[in-house]
Write a protein that binds this DNA or RNA. Structure first.
Length: 109
DNA sequence: ACGTTGACCTATA
DNA sequence: GTATAGGCCAACG
């Protein structure tokens, strides 16, 4: 099924442990849609429509920048959520992003 | 139906 | 290491 792509994205994002962050490209690559990372972003956009809660705040871009904070309703909500989970965020960027990076291809293998 | 936009990434200069 | 260009597929107007 084609829509499985989104469901898979939501599932992977849901598997992200608290205090951890990942990138759209990592998920896209894990799903085999490497190069089309934008689709992951669209999936996140639909995540708000999902009945289940999707920790989209744990998903950031390759630079660790909170690009999608605007889509959370409040630009500070995403940062607050991350800080609440123990993720240090400065200037809308994850400080220890490299340390907190969670790769589904490695973690989930 | 066509054109533009978008929560991005990789490559080249 | 920074800057610019291209590519990707789907949804919105």
């Amino acid at each position: 099924m084609e829509s499985d792509f989104y469901q898979n994205v939501f599932e992977v994002v849901r598997q992200i442990p608290a205090g951890r962050v990942t990138s759209y490209g990592a998920i896209a690559r894990y799903l085999g849609t490497a190069g089309s990372s934008r689709m992951v972003g669209w999936a996140m956009n639909l995540s708000h429509h999902q009945q289940i809660y999707v920790p989209a705040h744990r998903v950031v871009n390759r630079n660790g920048l909170l690009t999608g904070k605007i889509h959370f309703g409040s630009p500070v909500m995403m940062q607050e959520l991350l800080e609440n989970e123990g993720v240090a965020v400065k200037d809308d960027c994850v400080t220890a992003f490299r340390e907190l990076f969670w790769d589904p291809m490695i973690e989930l293998e």
